[in-house]
Computed example of a mutant assay.
Amino acid sequence: MRSLLVISAGLSQPSSSRRLADMLAEATRAKISARGEGAQIDVIEVRDLAFELATAMTDQTAQTPLLARAKQQVADADGLIAVTPVFQGSYSGLFKTFFDTLEPHGLDNLPTIIAATAGSSRHALILDYALRPLFNQLHANVVPTGVFQAIEDLGTPEGERIAARIERSAIQLADQIVVPQDRVPGIAGDLTGLGGRSTVRLAKENFIPLDKLLNGYGK
């Protein structure tokens, strides 16, 4: 069973960010299931952590149990879907604050879809000038296809193209979480069913120090 974590920074309830996040999560779960694996979807609504986020940023000794649980969910995740509404031309402050509170290397090698919502398609470049640099800085494995959805695009041909991008990004995320079985294994051997963080964890578990590998040689 793979763990798929959704982080939504929408403020209203329901929010367009959460609706997009749910579509991405269900599409990804379907692609993972097609690879013979199950996927458990967990959701973090960042607005529910607003008070603890403010507390954590101003008092590092304060108890923030909800935030601590959210951080553990990030640490345990095999894949991430991160969705933010656009505020002042970029990701929301609440969205950024959540990632500011994570431990260093908290997103290392984590397969990730980035997505954003707004009222107008004029903000579509947020994926490349704001979100992708942020998650690259955090060392996440961001899939090539990000998803931007504008309210004005719903029910239009552009809305249909967005649906196709959702499918494409879901395939790319599933490919990182569960390696497709039609891939040729490399020198590391058969890594079928492993990808992203799972591959890194396996490499660490199977690591053999050089001195042990050379033990007995040259004698």
Rank of each mutant, 00 (worst) to 15 (best):
L4M: 07
Q88V: 12
F135H: 00
S92L: 09
E45R: 15
V6S: 09
S169Y: 07
D175K: 01
P209Q: 11
S169W: 08
I113F: 11
I177P: 09
A75S: 14
V178Q: 02
I41F: 06
D42P: 04
M57E: 14
I81R: 02
F148C: 06
V83E: 06
T145N: 02
L214D: 05
R161S: 06
L213P: 10
E160H: 05
H123E: 06
I166A: 01
I162L: 11
T117D: 03
D108F: 13
G10P: 10
N215S: 15
D128E: 15
R47V: 11
I208R: 12
G186I: 12
A77W: 08
A140Q: 04
G89T: 04
Q172C: 03
D108H: 12
T61I: 06
I7Y: 03
R161M: 10
Y91G: 06
F87P: 11
P14Y: 03
R18M: 13
M23V: 09
R18H: 11
A56R: 13
G36D: 07
I126T: 01
I187V: 14
V86G: 01
G106S: 09
L210C: 10
P209K: 14
N206I: 10
G189R: 07
L67G: 00
Q176I: 02
L94H: 03
S15A: 09
T55L: 15
A116I: 05
G193M: 12
L110E: 00
A188D: 11
A62I: 03
F148Q: 02
A34M: 04
K71Y: 08
E167Y: 02
V74E: 05
L102N: 04
G159L: 08
D48V: 14
S90D: 15
N136K: 13
F95I: 02
T84W: 07
V143R: 03
R168Y: 11
D48A: 15
R132N: 09
V147E: 05
Q73E: 02
A174S: 05
S16W: 11
T64K: 03
R183Y: 15
G89H: 04
L11K: 06
G38F: 09
R2V: 01
G193P: 11
L80Y: 02
A21F: 04
E52R: 10
